[in-house]
């Protein structure tokens, strides 16, 4: 008789939130099932609550001065490093995206490549935004008059529902490149690439709290972020196709504290294939103008 080797026990993964550089479970203790596009069980993800959103905003607010205070060159380097690690974990993202979005292996490869390229594209803007969007203004007096874009502060990002990686990168990267910190509400039904991205961010010199990711019901969490008085801007892209909420409602809530609101481009989500633009970066900046006397 031969002894059979014991079957290896699966190492199952618990998907958690990403708040302040740590991976906590939801304060509410809730989880929900994430299924593939074909309906097969993929994983349990944490179902975040409004208190997780509140904690995330607090972490983002605490991290904001440090991130904005880093030199633009340094921020660009840090973000490029994220792209390096994304490339290194390509296989994981391909399988996450293929399962979640129901794509073929080859299509998923293309999507991941596009997402990494987009991240690099935005990272490159870090030390170039001020040259393009800033200006030395001609004024009638002995002054230098200089306008420069500055980060607005804490940005809430309601991530797209359909495109769980490329769409997420397309709304996340432009917000953080200028020195904003963000609270992301990941795609409700396809949250796994967002958490995998959080694992990349956690190991790539991005300071804790710069990006915070909450998974859960978009319709439950987003209104609290739109109302939150310590959030300076909100991207409502993910309200398209989310149940229980429209982007118009979020915009109305955000008006209470005169937040900057970035509306979705169209009535449906689109493919995100060419959704990269300088305007996405400038949507979360404030123009600071300085008058400085000229030397006599």
């Amino acid at each position: 008789m031969r002894a059979t080797a014991p079957a290896r026990i699966d190492v199952r993964k618990t998907y958690k939130l990403f708040i302040g550089g740590a991976f906590p479970r939801s304060e509410s203790g809730r989880t929900y099932e994430v299924t593939s596009a074909k309906g097969a069980f993929l994983a349990n993800a944490a179902q975040g609550s409004r208190k997780d959103a509140r904690d995330s905003v607090r972490a983002a607010r605490a991290a904001q001065p440090g991130w904005a205070g880093a030199t633009a060159y340094n921020r660009g380097q840090v973000l490029y490093r994220v792209a390096e690690l994304l490339e290194g974990r390509r296989a994981q993202f391909v399988s996450d995206v293929a399962a979640g979005e129901g794509l073929t292996e080859r299509r998923a490869q293309d999507v991941v490549s596009a997402a990494i390229d987009r991240w690099v594209w935005y990272a490159g803007w870090s030390d170039k935004v001020a040259q393009v969007a800033g200006n030395a203004n001609p004024v009638a007096g002995p002054y230098f008059n200089i306008s420069a874009p500055e980060p607005t502060g804490v940005v809430a990002v309601i991530a797209p529902q359909e495109s769980s990686l490329l769409g997420l990168v397309s709304v996340l990267a432009p917000a953080i490149v200028t020195g904003n910190t963000v609270v992301v509400v990941a795609s409700e039904d396809r949250p796994l690439p967002a958490i995998s991205l959080a694992e990349v961010l956690a190991t790539s010199d991005v300071p804790g709290g710069v990006v915070n990711i909450i998974t859960g019901r978009t319709g439950e969490i987003a209104p609290h972020l739109a109302k939150h008085m310590d959030v300076n801007a909100i991207d409502v892209a993910g309200a398209l196709g989310a149940s229980g909420i429209t982007w118009g409602e979020l915009e109305a809530e955000a008006a209470g504290t005169v937040k900057r609101v970035l509306r979705p481009a169209g009535d449906d989500e689109g493919s995100w294939a060419d959704a990269q633009s300088l305007n996405a970066i400038l949507a979360y900046t404030e123009t600071k103008t300085v008058w400085h006397p000229k030397g006599m």
């Binding site: 607010r61 609290h224 109302k227 008085m229």
Partner: peptide, 14 residues
């Protein structure tokens, strides 16, 4: 107190 009064989370700007 502001949170209880308005229902919205407040922040240090206030």
């Amino acid at each position: 107190r502001q949170k209880l009064a308005t229902g919205a989370y407040s922040g240090p700007d206030y």
